[in-house]
Design a protein around this nucleic acid. Structure first.
Lengths: 332, 332
DNA sequence: GCCGGTATCGATACCGGTATCGGTAACGTA
DNA sequence: TACGTTACCGATACCGGTATCGATACCGGC
């Protein structure tokens, strides 16, 4: 008792396969009577079209492949949300893959996705190894790299400069009077964008003759629990810091909780700075500094860029859409 | 300059399409020489197999469709993470869709996904309208409904009872000496599982002659910011509560922050109880009560169940896998 | 030189749709 | 009556793979 095919629907309706196809698609050259018969038969048989056959025949799919590195903090899910929202109403369907920050896994996922012949592909970051880039180029579809801006895109690029984000935050904090900086991060070997922020931050410090006086990092993924633990360790080790820069807001929130428990006053004694501008950060009882990354907007923008590239072709479209994170220091 | 087909690879290698197919798949009956020639040609042309053709021909796909209602808090992304992890190494590929808690959208997404002829489908919850259920049944593939347990599954069911989770939390809080309960929630019309927890909680209260003395709800999605705002409103309105039950941990965290700002001591004056057991909850400076929902585990379990059903058939497999959330009250 | 077995290969059909194009019936018009 | 037009329909080819089965070449043994 297999799924019914169009042929079977046609048989039940007493018309040919071709007429049934036209009837269901609302194409021309079909009588009202045939349309009614076919629709009835399709309904009764529970017919659902076979996209495999459709796409093979029509030589295109309605798929937009998306590869993100992680789902374990809220940032990428929000990007995905933005992408599906941006695709809404276009008939396009997003398909997601998770690379776990592993370049080999990312390449395999991309290869796998390309075998479905998506109409466009959205990948995270600009630091793919050469083999992956070749794969993307050969796919001959719009390639949109998101989140990052520091590097050379294959095709299109929607994101922000993490170097500059780090730099801008450092400048703002220096301007607010901070001098003795510590850094707390996680999985920097994998999360290259967090690394870029740190580099940019350090560069801005150096420009003022400053540097990180201490740092704590761990290979695990970012989390409030980890941020809390590393902060306790760092503050015990080096008590006279007046500002902590974190790899992101999850870590920074944990840092704030650590300070609250250790009775270290925030921000008067230590200012805490993160990255992302999570909803959580604005609910905290003591405000922390953060730069809001427009995650949902980047997703939507990438999706719309993909649609535009499919409609109008690559040419005539700007290859780069730059977002600028907006810094809030909280009460300093 | 289209993507090369197997035919073109074969031509370049000087063999037939069939031999090229066999060579690339590592099938028998091909000489080492042919294999070498074909692989070289495929490499040089950047050949990537066409899964549309493969799946149409072989009458099956490696897809597992997944439909979740939201990506705006960390719960569902973690479930998706668990699903991809559970599928790892099986050759199966998860495909996600987001329904935004909208039954009509969910039905459309499911119909769309079914048109790709997935090998199995995982959907959230047990409360699909009849039409959607019919669609799922007619698909004639393993259907796995996750997260919830209160209802009748189409096929397989992996989740926990939210009625019981709410009930258990209420009992634990009563046992801990709390009597004057308030409720704070969001989007209860959409998030049916949060509603079930509330119902279960209220039922347990009633069994002890108690009830919610006050509640604040809002139609917006859950967030720490919303939890904070509603808590302030509720506490101002009704000052003598000794326990607040929230629709989830995001809201509860916001509630805690509100209490900290209002100088209401937690938990001695008001105990705060959420749901999910987020990482965040265990990092908070004051611990809150929560029940840990095994999100990742449910995802992995659902994925493995799907694989088992595909390998061994539906029969002989238990139709239900029940998880029990683990309650922690924190310091009471 | 004939035979059977093995290794290798390719022609053909098929999966389930759609594009294309030719055919037929009904009707109006010259 | 002959012919063009319109409306509707279906046979066929094709998309890019794989399953199947028959063909061919080569080998050793008799």
């Amino acid at each position: 008792m297999r799924r019914p095919t169009l042929e079977e629907v046609a048989l039940a309706a007493g018309v040919s396969k071709m007429t049934a196809s036209r009837a269901l698609r609302g194409a021309a050259d079909v009588s009202q009577e045939s349309i009614a018969k076919v629709k009835l038969a399709a309904e009764q048989l529970g017919y659902v079209g076979n996209r495999l056959a459709l796409s093979l025949s029509s030589q295109n799919t309605n798929l937009v492949s998306v590869v993100v590195p992680s789902m374990s903090n809220i940032v990428f899910p929000e990007v995905l949300s933005g992408i599906t929202a941006g695709l809404e109403g276009s008939g396009m369907q997003a398909v997601f893959g998770i690379s776990d920050y592993d370049p080999d896994k990312e390449r395999d996922i991309i290869r796998n996705m390309l075998s479905w012949r998506p109409a466009a592909i959205i990948v995270t970051g600009l630091d793919q190894p050469e083999e992956t880039v070749r794969l993307l180029k050969q796919a001959d579809i719009p390639v949109i790299q998101i989140m990052d801006l520091d590097g050379t895109p294959v095709d299109f690029n929607v994101g922000l400069s993490h170097h500059m984000a780090g730099e801008a935050m450092a400048k703002a904090l220096i301007k607010a009077g901070r001098r003795r900086f510590g850094y707390i991060g996680s999985a920097l070997d994998k999360d290259l964008r967090a690394g870029k922020r740190k580099t940019g931050f350090a560069r801005a410090l150096a420009a003022e003759g400053l540097q990180f006086l201490a740092e704590e990092t761990a290979p695990a993924g970012s989390s409030a629990v980890l941020g809390k633990a590393l902060t306790k360790r760092l503050v015990e080790k080096c008590a006279d810091l007046d500002c902590l820069y974190y790899s992101n807001d999850d870590m920074a929130a944990g840092g704030l909780f650590a300070c609250m428990e250790m009775q270290v006053s925030v921000p008067s004694k230590i200012l805490i700075a993160g990255f992302n501008g999570l909803d959580l950060a604005s609910a905290l009882p003591v405000s922390i500094a953060t730069s809001r990354s427009p995650r949902r907007e980047m997703g939507e923008s990438a999706a719309q860029l993909a649609l535009a590239a499919l409609r109008k072709g690559r040419d005539g479209l700007s290859p780069t859409i730059e977002f600028t994170p907006e810094i809030t220091l909280g009460e300093v």
